[in-house]
Design a protein around this nucleic acid. Structure first.
Lengths: 256, 256
DNA sequence: TCATATAACTTTGTCTGACAGTGTGACATT
DNA sequence: AATGTCACACTGTCAGACAAAGTTATATGA
């Protein structure tokens, strides 16, 4: 069989991947989203368009495009005439966010089990969680916790569910950050998550769903808890005080 | 107790609602989304920024903001250097969209039953569906079908699930519109939906979830069906040929 | 002194115009 | 037939502008 050398079919060059070029507004949205996720931008904080655009060295239109993105993700809110603010979660948001997460993750579990998908990522994420708990830093544990749930959904192989999970992660983080008690974690995270990982890996559907429901309910009730008040005005920073990204600490100051 | 007359607390004037002022980009996004939903804008069609902006009598930046919105909703896609196109669903999208819908609607059902929420809207939507089936117009039936599922989720009272359902509706519509056979509906929609409505209203959780799963699976398999090919290049218009909005038929022509 | 009204300032919302970079199609060339 | 070249169209991004809306500060009157 003769194969021409010039212009070989894609299958012959499996090394080459589709080139990904992100637009400016994509990059801006990513930065802002990360800044929110890691606490550099606090809930309720307003985004000054000119200053932020200057800081990022982009034009105002590009920034505004990115903001639209974040607004439709529910990560920022738009107050007409008053601009864009980082979404500040209220008490009513707690159950709502966790309802969505239970929807996404339950479905992911069903898909994983029914389609018998590989669960290596989940066990790997569980090990990361174990390690984070040893370090005993709330922020690290929180990250590992969310990563675990992301891994769970990613295993399902559903692109859309995985995307939804990504924004739900930010929502969850915003819930904690909007809580006046700041960032907290339950001490029994590891047990329940290990149980979940094992049940999913073993293909025990109803048990998995049960454990998941329990995890969600407990997380929600922790936020609801006595004198919780996600509604609070004052917002505490993350308790391990990990140095926030330089750029964004600057932004936080300058953006008033 | 003395209450000042000026600036009365909101609770005293329950008639007054928060004024909603939509931004231009909001309105544009709505128009484009509707145009996609009712088939005026076909899957794969590209959006010429200058022409579309002229047509809507808005500036290019405002249009671009709206497009960002739609892109992040997964209703349009962005090809770098080549602009924005109406999302063209592929075979792999079928199961993905229905997986998300099952996730959302299952959770909605659970919430409705556990929180014992009113189900009037569902029965009302069912009656609309009955009426639409009598008319025997595929497009009307499709609308009523989706409205039913939207009503179901809205009943749950979860704002986020309801929002997600709204975009899932457009995704579902895009699935049908991307199918070369055009718009079709199963003849047994009514039976299954009536069964679902009754089960939910009666609070029978597992039965409801079962019926829902069946509805989703059947809808997906219809699209997968023999010689289906959502991947198809040619796209048939809606079969009842309801006159598409004047403005948008113009756009379709002019936007190439 | 407190509350309201006026003024000054800031910021948003939107538009116009501009221009380099990239994609596209026609045409010439090898 | 494949490649190279050119012109054109469109996108991606920016700077600047300005009215409208919000915000803060100042002045005025009870």
């Amino acid at each position: 069989m003769i194969v021409t050398v010039t212009n070989p079919p894609a299958s012959e060059l499996p090394v080459l991947r589709k080139v990904v070029r992100s637009s400016t507004s994509d990059l801006i949205a990513d930065q802002l989203r990360n800044a929110i996720y890691n606490g550099s931008l606090e809930p309720g904080q307003s985004i000054n368009e000119v200053r932020t655009a200057e800081l990022l060295e982009v034009s105002r239109p590009s920034l505004r495009e990115a903001l639209q993105r974040l607004i439709s993700e529910g990560v920022m809110t738009h107050a007409p005439g008053r601009g864009v603010h980082v979404k500040k979660m209220r008490v009513t948001d707690i159950d709502d966010v966790y309802a969505v997460r239970e929807a996404i993750e339950s479905q992911a579990i069903k898909l994983i089990i029914r389609r018998e998908r590989a669960t290596a990522r989940i066990t790997r994420a569980l090990r990361e969680l174990e390690r984070a708990i040893e370090d005993n830093a709330a922020r690290t544990i929180g990250d590992a916790d969310l990563s675990f749930h992301h891994a769970l959904v990613a295993c399902s192989g559903s692109a859309r569910l995985t995307d939804l999970m990504k924004v739900s992660m930010v929502h969850t983080r915003l819930l904690s950050l909007s809580d006046r008690r700041g960032y907290e974690v339950r001490c029994d995270v590891l047990d329940s998550h290990r149980e979940l990982a094992e049940a999913v890996t073993a293909g025990r559907e109803s048990q998995s769903l049960g454990v998941l429901a329990r995890i969600m309910a407990e997380a929600a009730s922790r936020l609801h808890g006595p004198d919780a008040g996600v509604d609070a005005q004052v917002v505490k920073a993350l308790d391990d005080g990990a140095a926030a990204d330089d750029q964004w600490s600057r932004l936080r100051e300058r953006a008033q």
